[in-house]
């Protein structure tokens, strides 16, 4: 909270930011958000990282905190699962807004242009890992399985490398 306060004081606000985001494909519904918090409450990323907060990111965009948003690590954490998209009563389509923010971060030089490719490779790897871990436990789905997640991960990594 202290960090957020500091951010707010040092922020330079750009009233054009929300218009730019909502002018891009995917960003159209940004301004219909009425901050109910259902996106954050259902977000699997927010569950493991309480600092990640979709509702707050939308607020920051609407407030015009351009530099803070585009330079933030937060916009790279979304796993594009579309849960918030499905729950949102205002059809804000946050997953699409996240993609717009990522594009803008690249265009405005906050991240290197190769970073998008980097992210998608990480996403592919985590999908493969998830699949590998499931393959380890699926044969035992009829029995009660004791899962030791770290062992599972080590084995999945080894299997991935063996392939």
């Amino acid at each position: 909270m202290v960090g957020e306060e500091k951010l707010r004081r040092s922020a330079s606000f750009d009233p054009e930011f929300k218009w730019e985001v909502s002018a891009r494909p995917g960003g159209e519904h940004l301004k219909t958000c009425f901050a109910c918090g259902v996106c954050t409450a259902g977000c699997p990323v927010a569950e493991i990282d309480p600092a990640y907060n979709p509702r707050r990111i939308i607020r920051m965009v609407i407030l015009g905190m351009r530099q803070q948003v585009l330079s933030s690590e937060m916009i790279w954490l979304c796993s594009t699962c579309y849960t918030c998209y499905a729950h949102c009563p205002q059809d804000v389509r946050f997953t699409e807004i996240m993609k717009v923010l990522r594009e803008m971060a690249v265009e405005e030089g906050y991240v290197h242009s190769s970073f998008l490719e980097c992210i998608s490779r990480v996403d592919r790897l985590s999908e493969s890992l998830r699949r590998q871990m499931l393959m380890e436990i699926l044969p035992h789905r009829g029995e009660g399985v004791e899962i030791e997640e770290r062992d599972l991960l080590t084995r999945a990594l080894r299997n991935l490398e063996d392939r």
Partner: peptide, 11 residues
């Protein structure tokens, strides 16, 4: 009941 406490910004 799972919700975001908007005052704290915490789920």
């Amino acid at each position: 009941v799972r919700y975001e406490d908007l005052r704290q910004g915490r789920v």
